[in-house]
């Protein structure tokens, strides 16, 4: 079967919206409901975070959601069970995003096999760099039909971007600024110039812009240079304060699309 991520980009080249949330947050059992609501609300990709005790690439909002999820009792095994349940009801591509250590302890091969069987399409592991991926992990990912999504940032050299583009077979996650995750209200001129530069590189893979997307204006601006955008911290904040998850998620996604 064709990977759902590739199928998505074949049919939709613009305004792709990928939404991140942490599994087991705000409550342990919310993962399935949030995923379903995202599909109903019109998101294109669901990114589910595997909580970790030491998320170094994340800002305060996602750190806190990781901590709450772990305190709630979330772990990799339960997460994969929840994904299986989601997959029975949801057709969108599902990406798991997390740090390498919990995957390593679960066992990389077993993790890839179980994730693929549960209906996962891809992985984002920010602390798994290109060299380690290619020497140790790529074969296992490929065998299980999982695509690996790499990050690039404004300090990534063109040469390195091209290497990452070559190693990628889905999309590239373009971090909008030199920062940890976190929502911002607008992009600077420097960021806009960076997005323009990325567009002119004419990479073989589409790229989505993430970090700092929070509202309709940042989403639209990101989409004007790329295939779409990823939203995380702003969505986590919404979940943390929500009394009506599915209603609030629908309103939020509608407001982003404008």
């Amino acid at each position: 079967m064709k990977n759902r991520i590739n199928a998505l980009f074949e049919s939709k080249a613009q305004n792709v919206l990928s939404v991140y949330f942490t599994a087991g947050f705000p409550a342990l059992g919310d993962t399935v409901r949030i995923a379903k609501s995202l599909e109903e609300a019109g998101a294109d990709i669901i990114e589910i975070g595997i909580p970790f005790s030491d998320p170094v690439a994340d800002g305060p909002v996602i750190q806190q959601s990781n901590k709450v999820a772990l305190d709630n009792g979330m772990n990799v095994k339960l997460l994969l069970q929840q994904v299986k349940e989601i997959r029975q009801q949801v057709k969108l591509p599902i990406i798991l995003m997390g740090y390498l250590n919990p995957v390593l302890q679960y066992g990389v091969e077993k993790f890839c096999k179980d994730a693929a069987a549960a209906g996962v399409d891809g992985l984002i592991l920010p602390d798994l760099p290109l060299y380690e991926f290619e020497t140790e992990y790529k074969t296992t990912f490929d065998t299980n039909g999982l695509t690996n999504v790499f990050l690039i940032s404004p300090t990534t050299s063109e040469n390195r971007i091209r290497q990452i583009d070559t190693a990628t077979n889905s999309f590239i996650y373009a971090v909008s600024s030199s920062s940890t995750t976190g929502a911002k209200n607008e992009f600077s001129q420097e960021q806009a110039d960076y997005f323009k530069y990325l567009k002119h590189l004419k990479l073989k893979n589409p790229f989505l812009i993430g970090f700092g997307i929070s509202n309709q204006s940042t989403f639209a601006q990101a989409c004007s240079y790329s295939s779409g955008a990823i939203i995380g911290s702003a969505f986590i904040r919404l979940l943390a304060d929500s009394k009506d998850l599915s209603g609030d998620i629908k309103k939020f996604i509608a407001s982003l699309r404008g």
């Binding site: 690439a57 760099p129 380690e132 690039i152 940032s153 300090t155 971090v175």
Partner: peptide, 11 residues
């Protein structure tokens, strides 16, 4: 090894 987020790669 060097298991770092891509943002730290240049440094």
């Amino acid at each position: 090894g060097a298991f770092i987020p891509e943002m730290l790669h240049p440094n």
